[in-house]
Design a protein around this nucleic acid. Structure first.
Lengths: 307, 307
DNA sequence: TAAAATTAGTTGCTTTTGTCAACTATTTTT
DNA sequence: AAAAATAGTTGACAAAAGCAACTAATTTTA
């Protein structure tokens, strides 16, 4: 068994080598990698103090001072005495500094282009998405709440993906067989047959353009609706996504003036049950059944809206 | 619009900073990053020549020679005269070299552990998968044929994912509406209702544990079968996956002694049509229809097996 | 098969890169 | 108003890396 950590270390070694190759071309130029990074930082923030650069790039101030001195002599930067702090100097790129950087950037981009030239556009998308995921997870040391987006219009692929999530998650967590997925497929087919954009709605939570959680309200009559397909990818629990989805669903029921909303679940879904109860749902029926390769209680929960 | 290249550059800068932070701890030890990498390379290949190390790590041989001299003095390595080439020396780690490296490795792993401690196991899986994808795409500058795996047992989640692929790909390529996905859901439900493991089969091609292509054979009688759901993610075309899937499907038909296999498609699927024809399928029917928000020809192709 | 070219590794010398501490001028804290 | 901290500069120095000349062995070539 190789642990997560050692897989990450392996990736780190790989990426170190990869970055080394990309930075080779700087040897052609008369500037070192550090010098170019300094130029890049100056360009990024338009105007910056030396102090700030040492912080960002972890450089010794004496070392940086000398590099900036050279840049000044070569007319790549200008130093402008700061108004607020007379000790500090605001550093800016000159036109020729900008030009140099843009030449170097182009070279760097060509080098990268060469590394991905055989990938088609979909593959490039896969690459960029994966990088985004790596960055997100490493930066935050968690999945950022802000990285989760919500929507409720059904677009092609959504229903299939939600079925897929049901199949995999229920198999992983409760060891349900493929029969369960077949059952979900049936429920979705029936739903789509009777789908009324007015009275039915599916909410989806997404991370990196992938659905990670969902819930739906399906009207049964003008008075009653069913809450269905409440599901959250285990990787995305504890981020308030479930609460947000359920709240949206219940709010929709109120807005549509349903008098009652119910849901069918099993006694196994402990996490979901907890949330249902928190939203005010109450157990109204419980029955032992044997299905999808398991024995469990099928339960009905109801939430009545008082007038 | 930010291009792929600039997104990659941005990731590179991010990861450079990330690696810098991780390597900070080497400042505590009396060895430089280069020296540790050398030790690591020696340990990896059990026994290695100096020449090989210079190639792998891009080091000057004079520089390396001196580092190895220090390692020798400190009893971290031994140099054993090579039998085959009397100029060369085989380098090996001593016990204390191994010990040092393992201490450093543990430190490095702790540092990484700290970076991911708030991720749960599913999130760690997502991270590792994403790294694998990045690595795969950058190393090969293409998707490696060997990275594609094939299987034909239906596991939970498969059917949902295949429906999802149909929905997204047909929308992307032919602008089909969600009605098409609904139709696919119906076809799968019907299939699962009558599914016979003996006479029906679905083949799936996977990359990184994700389905990227599929095809199925559905028996109609003892004599005839239908080929269905032939689909390939655009990112994975041109790798021979389609051919492999179709060949498997046709071979299965031969094995099951069907006399005829047919498929229904549209005139729009030019790429798939080409492959069908290559496999020996012939057009037997063509009819104009208006569906899923488009007008097109629905076509039937047949492949008869001569006795 | 002997001379020429190449290769693995070492060593002396040099440049580049980076560190440390002392210093000035200014700002912030007490 | 004095003390402490901060932005930046400079001199001295050490570490990291590169270059070229050299030895000894191996491979190529003619």
């Amino acid at each position: 068994m190789t642990s997560t950590t050692s897989k990450i270390r392996s990736f780190n070694r790989f990426y170190t080598a990869h970055l080394d190759i990309l930075s080779q071309h700087y040897l052609d130029s008369e500037y070192s990698l550090t010098e170019i990074r300094i130029l890049y930082e100056i360009s990024e923030s338009k105007t910056i103090t030396a102090q700030k650069i040492t912080e960002i790039l972890n450089l010794d101030k004496g070392y940086l001072s000398r590099i900036l001195k050279r840049f000044l002599k070569e007319n790549l930067i200008v130093k402008i005495a700061s108004e607020e702090d007379k000790r500090a100097l605001n550093i800016k790129l000159t036109d020729s500094g900008n030009e140099l950087l843009s030449v170097l950037n182009t070279k760097s981009e060509n080098k990268i282009e060469g590394k991905i030239e055989n990938l088609n556009s979909s593959q490039k998308e896969i690459l960029v998405d994966a990088m985004k995921t790596v960055r997100n997870l490493l930066t935050e040391n968690k999945i950022a709440r802000e990285a989760i987006t919500y929507r409720h219009e059904i677009t092609p692929g959504d229903v299939g993906y939600i079925i897929h999530l049901h199949g995999t998650i229920y198999c992983k967590e409760y060891n349900f067989s493929t029969d369960f997925e077949k059952y979900v497929i049936k429920t979705f087919y029936d739903f789509l047959e009777k789908y009324s954009p007015e009275n039915d709605r599916i909410w989806m939570a997404e991370y990196n353009n992938k659905i990670v959680g969902c819930v739906a309200i399906v009207h049964q009559s003008n008075e009653e609706a069913q809450l269905r397909w409440f599901l959250l990818d285990p990787a995305f629990r504890g981020l308030g996504i479930g609460k947000r989805l359920l709240t949206d669903a219940v709010d929709f029921c109120k807005e549509k003036k349903f008098k009652n909303v119910f849901l069918l679940t099993t006694n196994m879904q402990d996490k979901a049950l907890q949330m249902y109860k928190m939203m005010g749902f109450e157990l109204t029926k419980s029955e032992q059944v044997q299905e999808w390769g398991k024995t469990f209680y099928e339960e009905r929960y109801d939430l009545k809206f008082s007038i």
